[in-house]
């Protein structure tokens, strides 16, 4: 097994899995019915992407299936960004988290559709259509909330300020990524960083949101298996039946 490729596949998969899970938690809590529908739809897209990627990871692993990877791993074996495990504190946090991740997904999948790994390229091409729509929606909400009322502006600015510390991780180049980038399998993180900032700047300007300038935080990144306090509770819930009935099929 190419362990670099396996880790990279899980990083992609887990971002979608955990963000999709967070959206599933918010069902029936939306500000109005249409938004509830749209958020569930986004969550479903993300879970579909996670499923395709986890299947690919399971194939590489050879001893487990995608459900084991989704529901059976230890916390340190999940490789998602801290950003996506951040809880649904309110709609402002939810949509800010979504926007920051949607920009990353669009930029990343745009590059990955030309990956030299055929499976990654094909999943990226399919996912790109979905995340492009997600980004359109979340950008529109950032603009509406940023340029809506004074209350919504202040609130969304606060959400951006608080979530910003988790964005560094997106552009952190480690050895796994570097090797795959050289092979033409992983996307070029320096390109991603540039394009991500350009898009975020563009939306923030229209939304009258000020981009925070925060110091780099001392975090053990999610993609290396280090997680926030929020992750344990998320997994306790998501893995509940698997933990309670390890051998049962559902």
């Amino acid at each position: 097994m190419n362990t670099d490729l396996y880790k990279y596949t899980l990083r992609l998969a887990d971002n979608s899995l955990i963000l999709g899970h967070r959206l599933s938690e918010y069902i029936s809590c939306g500000p109005f019915l249409e938004e509830d529908l749209a958020l569930t739809n986004t969550g479903l897209d993300l879970l579909g992407q996670a499923e395709a990627l986890l299947k690919y990871a399971a194939e590489q692993n050879g001893t487990v299936d995608e459900d084991y990877l989704a529901f059976g791993r230890e916390e340190y074996e999940y490789a998602n960004f801290h950003l996506v495990e951040y809880p649904n504190e309110d709609y402002g946090y939810l949509i800010t988290r979504q926007f920051l991740m949607d920009v990353f997904n669009v930029v990343n999948y745009t590059l990955l559709k030309d990956s030299k790994d055929a499976m990654i390229a094909s999943i990226a091409a399919k996912s790109l259509k979905e995340v492009t729509y997600h980004l359109r929606r979340s950008s529109e909400w950032m603009i509406r909330l940023g340029d809506g009322t004074q209350e919504s502006h202040d609130k969304i600015q606060e959400c951006v300020n608080h979530l910003w510390m988790y964005t560094d991780e997106m552009f952190d180049l480690d050895e796994v990524h570097e090797r795959l980038q050289k092979e033409g399998i992983a996307s070029d993180l320096s390109v991603i960083k540039k394009q991500w900032h350009a898009k975020v700047d563009e939306v923030f300007e229209i939304a009258t949101i000020i981009k925070p300038e925060l110091p780099k935080y001392s975090l053990v990144y999610g993609k290396d298996g280090g997680h926030t306090d929020f992750m344990g509770y998320l997994l306790a819930e998501m893995q509940f039946l698997k933990n309670r009935f390890p051998k049962e099929v559902w």
Partner: peptide, 16 residues
């Protein structure tokens, strides 16, 4: 609660 929590979002969408 969901309706009340969403009030500021609906107000912002309307103002925008």
């Amino acid at each position: 609660k969901a309706h009340k929590d969403g009030e500021w979002v609906r107000a912002a969408a309307q103002a925008f």
